[in-house]
Design a protein around this nucleic acid. Sequence first.
DNA 1: CTAAATGCAAAAGGTTTGCAAGGAT
DNA 2: ATCCTTGCAAACCTTTTGCATTTAG
Lengths: 155, 155
Amino acid sequence: MARVKKQEADGSEHQAFYDCLRKKNLKRTAQRDVILNVFLHTQGHVSSEELYHRVKQVDPSIGFTTVYRTLKLLADCGLAHQVQVGDGYTRYEQGFHYSHHDHLICVRCGELTEFYNQRLEAIQHQIVRRHQFKMLDHSLRIWGVCHKCQTATSE
Amino acid sequence: MARVKKQEADGSEHQAFYDCLRKKNLKRTAQRDVILNVFLHTQGHVSSEELYHRVKQVDPSIGFTTVYRTLKLLADCGLAHQVQVGDGYTRYEQGFHYSHHDHLICVRCGELTEFYNQRLEAIQHQIVRRHQFKMLDHSLRIWGVCHKCQTATSE
DNA sequence: CTAAATGCAAAAGGTTTGCAAGGAT
DNA sequence: ATCCTTGCAAACCTTTTGCATTTAG
C-alpha cells in the first residue's frame, strides 16, 4: 500500500480536456468523450490502430480517422505523450500526470519497461548546457532482451 | 595532436566490405563499389533517398532499390550504422570506425550534433543490470534549439 | 553455367488529407 | 446560421518485394 501511486480525483483529465477544447474553440463531441475515456483506461503505449480497435468495442460507429485525430488532439492538450518505440507505429502513453521517464524495449517480446534515473537527467542537462543547446525533449531507449525472455527456453 | 582520432589506412573499409561479401557468398559489383565510395565520402546522416541522389551524380544508371539494398548490406557488414532521427527517414552514418555516441537534434535547422559521455554509458549499464536486461543497443536523442538558432533573429 | 544482382514497377503499410454530410453552439 | 467534426475514400510517402533480365564467379 505504501507505494500506491496516488490517483488524482477522477475527472481531472476530462476537465483539462474540456478546458483545452474551449481554449482552442473546438467542440466537445460524443466521439471525443468515448476516445478520451478508452484512452484513459488503457495501460501502456497504444498506437492509433490499437486504440481504434478498443474504441470500436465501445462504439463501432467511430472511425479510425477520428481516433487518429483525437489522439493528436489529446497530445496537443497534454493528455497524451508520443513515444517512438521504433516498431513502425507512433505510440501514445498517458501524459496528464506524465513525468519524464525512459524505456527498456525487449526486442523479443516487445515489452516496454519504464525507468527513471535522476543522475541520467542531470548529466543530460549538463551536456545541453555545455553545448549551449536549449533542450525541448529527450528520449533514451534501450533495446535488448528482458529477463523473462532470457530465461525462456532458447530455441 | 594528442587526441586526434587515428585514421586507419585508406581502403580498409573497402577490404572489410569485400571480406564481408565473400563471407556471405555475395558478389562484388560496380554498383556496390560506387555506392560504398559515395557513402564513405558523405558526412553525417544520410537517408537512402539522399544517398541515391548523390550516387546518381556519379552513375545515373544506378537505381534507388540498389542503393537502398546496398545501404542495408553495408549496415549488415558493420560499415554503416542506422539512426532514427525521427524525421520519417531511416538514416545511416558511417559505422566502420563507429564508436557509440548520442545525438543533439536541432528542431529548427535540423543539425545533428554528436556527443559521448562516459558517465551516461555507465549509468545505462547499471540500469540494465538492475533490470536483469541484456542490452543490445541504445539511443539517446535530445531535441531542442541549437545555439546558432537561438541567437538568430527570432521572428 | 548457376546463383546472385539489378532496376523497374508495383505492393505494403502507416500516416494524412479532401470532401460531403452531419452536428454543436 | 456558422463553423467544427466525422467517416469514408483516396492520397501520400517511405520502405519492401516480385520478377524478368543481366552479370559475377
